[in-house]
């Protein structure tokens, strides 16, 4: 168990820490203006990396395990044949990925707090935003794991959906700096809302965008309903 937790933490934190070193320290970009406030780039990028961690850790925790259980071990079949409700299966699998990811996000916050304590605020809205982000991306991982037909297809899904989201959705730069049409496209991806919420709650210097939290919740609902449809109609 201890070995598993350590493995999860190392694998899920490695990439965010590398991003922190490369973008936060390596690039040494100047201040970023958000809502009329000038924020040092390192303080800007750390919440983005927490959002990114919530995506990568939740998604991979849920999708990898479910994908192996469904296509390789076939132990997912065993769960499907037990007298559990479809919702219980979805929420149970999602909760596992969510809690693992919350652990990674918490550690990322602590690292950020150690490096740059001035702008790192542990607010209730930050907790709500991170929990909802982890829940949403864990549901997305489940959607991917239920839909793909092979391990290769899962890798393709990650390359086409997760990797572009990682870089484009307001994690390393402000989406506001982009043309309107591109902004619209990026707001259609849930990591943009997660980044916006987590950054606003962490910096705590401008009003929290409740609309983004609501949109993130709608994404979670949509992924949940898709998963319910896939399991209920045995489209897996």
């Amino acid at each position: 168990m201890r070995h598993n937790v350590l493995n999860i933490l190392i694998s899920s934190l490695m990439l965010p820490i590398l991003y922190l070193l490369a973008f936060g320290y390596g690039l040494r970009a100047g201040d970023v203006e958000i809502e009329g406030h000038m924020i040092p780039y390192l303080d800007f990028v750390i919440p983005g990396i927490i959002a990114l961690t919530s995506l990568s850790s939740s998604f991979s925790s849920t999708s990898t395990r479910m994908n192996v259980q469904r296509l390789y071990y076939r132990s997912f079949d065993e769960m499907m044949m037990c007298p559990l409700s479809n919702s219980a299966i979805i929420i149970g699998k999602t909760a596992l990925g969510m809690f693992r990811s919350l652990l990674s996000c918490s550690l990322m916050f602590i690292i950020g707090y150690v490096l740059e304590p001035s702008y790192m605020n542990l607010t209730p809205l930050l907790v709500v935003s991170v929990v909802l982000a982890c829940f949403t991306f864990s549901l997305l991982g489940e959607t991917a794991a239920l839909m793909v037909k092979s391990h290769q297809a899962m890798s393709t899904f990650s390359s086409l959906v997760i990797t572009p989201m990682t870089f484009l959705c307001g994690t390393f730069f402000s989406v506001a700096a982009l043309p309107g049409a591109v902004q619209g496209l990026l707001y259609a991806l849930p990591l943009t809302e997660a980044s916006v919420c987590i950054r606003a709650a962490t910096l705590d210097v401008y009003p929290f965008p409740y609309w983004a939290l609501a949109v993130l919740a709608l994404f979670a609902l949509a992924f949940y309903l898709i998963n319910l449809y896939l399991i209920k109609n045995r489209k897996i």
Binding site: Q69, Y73, S75, D77, E78, M81
Partner: peptide
């Protein structure tokens, strides 16, 4: 029901 599938479907 209880089911024993042809392919062992245990979590390895």
């Amino acid at each position: 029901i209880g089911v024993i599938q042809q392919h062992i479907s245990l979590d390895k």
